[in-house]
């Protein structure tokens, strides 16, 4: 069986996996990092979004072996101890979730958005940039506001 070595949330891991293992399967099934969700499994919903070398990707459409020697950040890797990441805090304060299933992906996509588009995001930009993330509860309204607030708060990181 091939071996994969990579850094996940600051921790180096190395382990044998089947070639067909998806990144999300490595995270959830083998490393018990179940914060990354599988919604649709067809690259539509974005619940499985993680950062691969700093860029948002859908981990259900990436082979784990393609991530050899790379750096992965999942939702579990954002908070510093008890202190939430500003984007997490903004979602919490703005009640930007109902069932919470899409939330990890929304937060990871939100941070990716800030990295590409900056700290001041207008509503139209956020809505367009959320193209790859589906939410079936909120109607997106609070999510959009939380991402705008989280983006501003990230300026102070």
């Amino acid at each position: 069986m091939p071996n994969v070595s990579l850094t996940i949330n600051g921790k180096k891991i190395s382990q044998p996996i089947e070639a067909r293992t998806l990144l999300v399967q490595l995270l959830r099934d083998q490393l018990s990092l179940t914060g990354t969700h599988v919604g649709c499994d067809t690259s539509q919903c974005g619940c499985c979004t993680v950062h691969l070398n700093g860029k948002g990707v859908k981990s259900c459409a990436v082979l784990a072996l393609s991530c050899q020697d790379s750096v992965i950040t999942t939702i579990e890797g954002l908070a510093e101890g008890e202190t939430l990441h500003p984007m997490q805090q903004a979602f919490r304060e703005g009640h930007a979730l109902q069932c919470g299933f899409c939330t990890p992906g929304m937060i990871m996509a939100g941070i990716d958005m800030v990295k590409r588009k900056g700290y001041e995001l207008d509503e139209k930009t956020v809505r367009e940039e959320l193209e790859g993330n589906l939410c079936r509860c909120t109607g997106y309204h609070t999510i959009v506001k939380a991402i705008q607030a989280g983006a501003r708060a990230m300026k102070n990181l």
Binding site: G46, G56, V57, K58, A61, A109
Partner: peptide, 9 residues
């Protein structure tokens, strides 16, 4: 093309 996460890849 697609969405931002797809475009990254």
């Amino acid at each position: 093309i697609g969405d931002p996460l797809v475009r990254n890849r």
